[in-house]
Amino acid sequence: MPAAALKPKPLPTQSTAKRPVQLDLPYAPVAKRPLPAGRPREWYVTHNRRLKAMRLAIALLDSGVYVPNQARNETIRSTARRIGVHPPSDTTCHMVRALMRYTR
Score class of each variant (00 low, 15 high):
M1S: 12
P2S: 13
P2K: 05
A4N: 09
A4W: 03
L6C: 01
L6V: 00
L6P: 00
L6S: 05
K7Y: 00
K7L: 13
P8G: 01
K9M: 09
K9I: 02
L11E: 15
P12G: 10
T13D: 10
Q14H: 08
Q14S: 14
Q14R: 10
Q14C: 12
Q14Y: 04
S15V: 07
S15D: 14
S15W: 11
T16G: 09
T16F: 04
A17D: 12
A17H: 11
P20K: 11
P20G: 12
P20W: 08
V21Q: 07
L25Q: 10
L25K: 12
Y27W: 10
Y27K: 11
Y27I: 06
A31F: 09
A31D: 14
A31V: 08
K32E: 12
K32S: 15
K32Q: 12
R33F: 04
P34H: 09
L35N: 08
P36K: 01
P36M: 03
P36W: 10
A37S: 14
A37D: 11
A37K: 15
G38C: 08
R39T: 02
P40L: 02
P40H: 01
R41S: 13
R41C: 06
E42P: 05
W43L: 04
Y44A: 07
Y44T: 12
V45N: 07
T46I: 12
H47Y: 15
H47M: 05
R49H: 14
R50P: 04
L51M: 10
L51T: 02
K52V: 05
K52L: 14
K52D: 03
A53F: 00
A53T: 02
M54C: 13
M54K: 03
M54Q: 15
R55S: 11
R55I: 01
R55E: 15
R55Y: 06
R55W: 02
L56H: 00
L56I: 01
A59F: 07
L60A: 08
L61F: 08
D62E: 15
S63D: 15
S63Y: 00
G64Y: 07
G64M: 09
V65T: 13
V67C: 05
N69W: 00
N69T: 14
Q70A: 11
Q70N: 09
A71G: 10
A71C: 08
N73Q: 11
N73M: 03
E74C: 04
E74N: 04
T75Y: 00
I76R: 01
I76A: 03
I76M: 02
R77E: 10
R77C: 02
R77Y: 00
T79W: 03
T79A: 10
T79F: 04
T79S: 10
T79H: 01
A80L: 03
R81Q: 15
R82L: 14
R82I: 10
R82C: 06
I83E: 13
G84M: 04
V85L: 15
H86Q: 14
H86T: 11
H86G: 08
P87T: 13
P88L: 06
D90N: 06
T91M: 03
T92V: 15
M95T: 01
V96Q: 01
V96R: 00
V96G: 01
V96S: 00
R97V: 05
Y102D: 06
Y102P: 00
Y102S: 14
Y102Q: 11
T103A: 09
R104F: 06
